[in-house]
Design a protein around this nucleic acid. Structure first.
Length: 880
RNA sequence: GCGGUCGUGGCGGAAUGGUAGACGCGCCAGCUUGAGGUGCUGGUGGGGGCAACCCCGUGGAAGUUCGAAUCUUCUCGACCGCACCA
């Protein structure tokens, strides 16, 4: 048992001298109820005139059933910002909702026979209760779940508006197909090329799917990153790389003989300057020419089938051993009369990027080189490194990818790489064999999912009319309740009645689209919906125009690319369909690190939960672990991200039960900078708990000696003045730290301040001490709000306002200035002593004092000073 | 494979060109308490010295500077993302 504000029974057991303590178990629910009663955190859809709005949003959770430490960290960070901004006079909107569609609900249905809706709403109820115990300053009246028909129905409206605006397209794309389960697999469900449930080898299959035309905004999505000055640079960089603008050329290669009716192959390259170093042409397995070859060549068909078992993820493709199949076809070089090169099918060429075909130049591309070496293809260098001898330069194991002078290249010889690129493009365009192009890595966003638990795509397929939008007055298209998960495949597809409807256009029998939306669609506009969560339209303009953009968005770095990019796309699409006025949804972004923990393993290899082991410290100070149940030694493993499989998780509910929400919040903020991974440790929580008790005790013990509330601390001297200076310096320091998301520094400054308050003794400090205690309470309030209310009610009995309703303390500039300064004195850059000078000392006075310092004298050793460097208030350096 | 981030005491970290190790955890010593997973006080990077002090030290190597954890180049290691997990 931890030391705690234990229930009365426990306290009696502790002995006859119970110490008074902060009883968080009764205090925390009491203050939560009081905030709710007063409506402290509720805001209107349309802010009153003159209000300074501030929209704080944390990434909403998936309702898995229990909150985890990542949520605690995320929502604590957001809550500190929300409470701080509120104190700074902003009208703060801080909503919460649920990203409630997705695969786990269907898995639960298949494995345990629970309806996905039932499972989801039960989980939401459990998690809402847990979040409420954290004391978050949320406007719960705005809550919704993406699986609420009121939400996904509006999403269907948005889809139809996007469609009308030309932002939606139906086309074919490749998916991972499990032939046994008859289902499309997510990349994470493909393990070593096999379906996770069936174990069957996965195949790639072509399906007609719905796409959002995000590529239409590629240029703007890239350019607008520059304006996002409150986004982390690394996230912007990752997005820029993802969008992947590259300049290059499209080159058409003529086939020596046509296959089917294909006479040429189009290739995209960023290195047209190396065209004369070509040694082969390679096709993706899905390329139409490869398909045509396969139709008449069983060996090629077999190789393509093998490639299809690789899965669709880019990582899997690029990490696989480079392999190929020679089609026997040849293509002509665009500029070398009569020279032809072999056409291969290769497993490392991506159909989704460029044209699905490349020309291989092994001399100057590492992948091409590995491929050429493996299959004995020619390697001709065409870029000469500076200073190399053209007669002797050869390529070994490493391709040469740097700058140089072009050689072995006909009309390009002697040019630089950029100049050669220009000249090749000119020649290609002149001869009609290609052109310079800008290529994007970004692909259109496929949103079709062959799943039940998602937002139905509001389309009806008719034999005569094609794909027809569901008319406005028949929205929302609701999911059927009665679904059967006992069969493999999509339950919507084999529902007996749901998909059979009449065509809204011609009235003849037709069928519904049975695909549902990717859950990324749900999370791409929820931030806008929060502004008017009950509106009978997707968003009301008065609300979104007033509240958006989100001023501070906070979430995990794992969403740095997709979720944020899709949301940026949605904002643009909603702007172009009249729903929003802006393009960038998130003005400020903060990405937090993960929560990690040690892992433990029993002797037989079982993973153990932290509560199943006891940590023992050996006499030599080294740590070991013992399994509590068996008393057998256990191994302490690596510190890594909390995960169920490693069992290195800590349940936030249990922590709040044992230590209270304030302790959990304080520890999670104090451990390290929020953008880094933090390690959850039992010792750390216990330390945070001790500090909450120390603050309470310090206040409770001081109370009888404090002057009445409102007593001016006045122009104190001595210890009282030093305490007042500490108070005001701490206000300034904590304010700066909170503004800069340096919450661990804010915590450290509050610790220091608590030490300073404890040291300031004597009756003449009483008024300064009241000021200090009231200040520390208010500065700590965004981080431990319940304790702050408790302390405030002790310090100011009868005060009408709660801390949650108070403005932020202001530092008095007169008390920020130090009376004396400590200056470090260096000789030749090495510290030799420090001097104390009055705050107003002149440079000459400072230099004289520095030179006179005895240890400095010794270091100077009588040598003449050549240079005196003085950085006012900081340092003096003598160069001899 | 491609892209990105991070390396500072026993541990989390502070310092973003100016006194390296603030603050906390842990540990050590003392006091308090009938007792302690309590409270309080002091100490705590490594080496040398009775001491005053001196030397070394921010993953490794080199460089720029009066001065580098911080800037530059190279290098090693750990972690994250890669389009159907959310």
């Amino acid at each position: 048992m931890p030391p705690s504000a234990a229930p009365a029974g426990d306290r009696a057991a502790q002995g006859p001298r119970p110490e008074p303590r902060h009883d968080f178990r009764t205090a925390e629910p009491r203050w939560q109820a009081e905030w709710e009663r007063r409506g402290c955190f509720a805001v209107p859809d349309v802010p009153p005139p003159g209000a300074r709005k501030y929209y704080v949003l944390e990434m909403f959770p998936y309702p898995s059933g229990k909150i985890h430490m990542g949520h605690v960290r995320n929502y604590t960070l957001g809550d500190v910002v929300a409470r701080y901004k509120r104190a700074r006079g902003h009208l703060v909107m801080h909503p919460m909702g649920w990203d409630a569609f997705g695969l786990p609900a269907e898995n639960a249905a298949r494995e345990r026979g629970i309806h996905p809706g039932r499972w989801t709403y039960d989980n939401i109820a459990a998690m809402r209760a847990e979040l409420k115990r954290m004391g978050l300053s949320l406007d719960w009246a705005r809550e919704f779940a993406t699986c609420d028909p009121e939400y996904y129905g509006q999403q269907q409206r948005l889809f139809l508006d996007f469609w009308k605006a030309g932002l939606v397209e139906r086309k074919e794309s490749w998916v991972n197909w499990d032939p046994v389960d008859q289902t499309v697999l997510a990349n994470e469900q493909v393990i070593d090329g096999r379906g996770w449930r069936s174990g069957a080898p996965v195949e790639k299959k072509k399906l007609a799917q719905w796409f959002f035309r995000i590529t239409r905004y590629a240029e703007d999505l890239l350019a607008a990153l520059d304006g996002l000055d409150r986004w982390p640079e690394r996230v912007k960089l990752m997005q820029a790389n993802w969008i992947g603008r590259s300049e290059g050329a499209r080159v058409r290669f003529r086939l020596a003989e046509a296959v089917a009716d294909i006479a040429e192959v189009e290739v995209f390259t960023t290195r047209p300057d190396t065209l004369f170093g070509m040694s082969f042409l390679a096709l993706a397995a899905e390329h139409p020419l490869a398909q045509a070859v396969a139709a008449r060549d069983p060996k090629a068909a077999e190789f393509i089938a093998e490639c299809r078992r690789m899965g669709t993820s880019e990582a899997a493709i690029e990490q696989a051993e480079k392999r190929g199949h020679d089609t026997g076809l040849r293509v002509a070089h665009p500029f070398l009369e009569g020279v032809t090169f072999p056409v291969w099918i290769a497993n490392f060429v991506l159909m989704e990027y460029g044209t699905g075909a490349i020309f291989g130049c092994p001399g100057h591309d590492q992948r091409d080189l590995e491929f050429a070496r493996k299959y004995g293809l020619s390697v001709l260098p065409v870029v000469l490194p500076p200073g190399a001898d053209p007669a002797r330069f050869t390529i070994g194991e490493e391709a040469y990818v740097e700058d140089g002078t072009i050689f072995n290249s006909g009309f390009l010889d002697g040019l630089s790489v950029p100049e050669a690129k220009r000249r090749v493009v000119e020649a290609l365009e002149r001869t009609g064999q290609g052109e310079g192009v800008v290529n994007w890595r970004l692909r259109d966003w496929g949103v079709s999912r062959q799943r039940y638990w998602g937002c139905p795509i509001p389309v009806i397929h008719c034999e005569g009319c094609g794909a027809v939008p569901v008319p406005e007055d028949r929205l929302p298209v609701l999911l059927p309740e009665d679904v059967d998960f006992s069969r493999p495949g999509n339950p919507l597809d084999h529902h007996p009645r749901w998909k059979h409807v009449d065509c809204p256009r011609c009235g003849r029998p037709a069928r519904r689209e049975t695909d549902t939306f990717d859950t990324f669609v749900d999370s791409s506009w929820y931030f806008a919906r929060f502004c008017s969560p009950r509106a009978p339209v997707p968003v009301t303009r008065e609300a979104v125009d007033a509240w958006l953009p989100v001023d501070q968005y906070i979430g995990g770095i794992e969403h740095a690319i997709l979720h944020l990019l899709y949301s940026r796309f949605f904002a643009r699409a909603m702007r172009d369909t009249g729903h929003l006025a802006l393009a960038e949804p998130f003005a400020g972004l903060f990405t937090q690190g993960m929560v990690t923990h040690e892992s433990y393993r029993a002797a037989d290899g079982r993973w153990l939960y932290p509560e199943e082991v006891e940590i023992v410290t050996a006499p030599d100070g080294s740590r070991g672990a013992v399994e509590k149940a068996t008393r057998a030694p256990a191994t302490i493993g690596r510190v890594e991200a909390m995960s169920k499989s490693k069992r290195n998780t800590v349940d936030p509910g249990a922590i709040i039960e044992r230590y209270g929400a304030d302790t959990a919040r304080w520890f999670i903020l104090s451990d390290n900078p929020p953008e880094r991974d933090m390690e959850w440790t039992e010792a750390g929580v216990a330390g945070a708990f001790r500090f909450t008790q120390r603050l309470w005790r310090m206040t409770a013990l001081a109370l009888p000696s404090l002057p009445p509330p409102g007593t001016p601390p006045g122009d104190a001297a001595g210890a009282a003045r030093r305490l007042r200076q500490a108070t005001h310096r701490t206000i300034a320091a904590v304010t700066e730290a909170l503004e800069g998301f340096a919450f661990n520094v804010a915590v450290a400054r509050i610790h220091e301040f608590a030490n300073a308050i404890a040291e300031a003794e004597g009756a003449d400090c009483a008024a300064a001490r009241r000021e200090a205690l009231e200040t520390i309470t208010r500065l700590a309030a965004p981080m431990m709000p319940h304790l702050a209310e408790e302390l405030w009610s002790m310090l100011r009995p009868g005060e009408a306002r709660l801390v949650a309703e108070l403005p932020w303390p202001e530092a008095d500039p007169a008390l920020l200035k130090a009376d004396t300064l400590t200056i470090a004195v260096q000789v030749l850059g090495r510290l030799r002593g420090t001097i104390e000078v009055p705050a107003g000392a002149t440079e000459a006075e400072v230099l004289a004092a520095a030179e006179a310092e005895p240890n400095v004298q010794r270091a100077l050793a009588g040598r003449p000073i050549r240079k005196r460097i003085h950085v006012p208030g900081r340092i003096v350096n003598f160069v001899v």
